[in-house]
Amino acid sequence: MFPCLKLKYLEERLQCISEFEKPKILLEQYVTPSHLGSHMLYTIQVSQYGDIDGKLVADLGSGCGALSVGAGVLDASLVIGFEIDSDALDIFTENIIDHELTNVDAVQCDVLKHLPNRFDKTFDTVLMNPPFGTKHNAGIDMKFLETALRLSKNSVYSLHKTSTRNHVLKYAESLGAKGEVLAELHYDLPSTYKFHKKHSVDIEVDFYRFII
């Protein structure tokens, strides 16, 4: 398949992802938008790094499975999604079945509290779209990053708010990883929750690649 067709195909596949029925505020449940997810995955596998095809891939806080499905479509040898929430995992399972993927697995666990050490340095690639952190759980995305860097033996791809860039890069360095911003993106969050006054909120996020 021509690369440009592959991007279109990926986006079409990700448009068919079922989403959270009742998003939970505490878990910051937002679906990774299809145009964003497809561009991330396209960069990770097709145009730049070849970090999915034939690899063991983890998706931390996998939610409804947008990134897991995308990595499955791009022929990861196995993707394992780690997610705490049962409702999200029900939709995750539905998405895996709808997309007829047999190379995607999931584990229900608390990514930040008890992910077994046996997984350390097991994955070739770790993907995540972590919670960005709010007043109530500030710094949660850095805890996700710490776990991701522990699990991967090669690379980690992640999204973080642009406003925290210096902190993210320093934090990664303190953990012995080298971070690079691949792109600045506009994350157009639809007003998922009742307390959102505006129709949608545009957040500036950085798309990172970290090398272990």
């Binding site: 077994p116 046996r118 097991t122």
Partner: peptide, 21 residues
């Protein structure tokens, strides 16, 4: 759940468990 996933999972995080594998 694949057996590759099973090969990695443990219950070591439980209180009082030393190996869990």
């Amino acid at each position: 759940m694949k057996l590759l996933t099973h090969n990695m999972l443990t219950s070591k995080c439980m209180k009082g468990v030393t190996v869990g594998y």
